[in-house]
Amino acid sequence: MSVRVRVPTPLRKFTQGSDEVDANGATVSAMLDDLEQNHPGIKERIMDENGKVRRFVNVYVNGDDIRFLKNVDTALKDGDSISIVPAIAGGM
């Protein structure tokens, strides 16, 4: 599965400054492994040592938070759009 990944500013040093890169993988987890192959160092910024997405990182597949889907086991299909977004304050 080839998907498009939007890269937030803090991670662009791993993607030679690109704000969008392509990646492959049948699931979010596999896609992150693939991302790591091509952009070494990026995965540990997104996931902790236990393979869980870090507390202050949100990952979206086509705009849906993966915590409402199957988390890192969420299946991907060709052309999906992935966003990696730091948590943001707001409200009230």
């Binding site: 939007r6 937030p8 500013t9 704000d19 949100n58 979206y60 705009g63 938070d65 966003s83 977004v85 730091p86 943001i88 304050a89 707001g90 409200g91």
Partner: peptide
Amino acid sequence: KGTYDDVNRLCSEIGDKYQWAFVNVNLR
């Protein structure tokens, strides 16, 4: 079109692209 959480995600991406002072993003 969506909830605040959708607004938030979009604004994080807009904030990355446009050089604005997002009070609750880059000025948080």
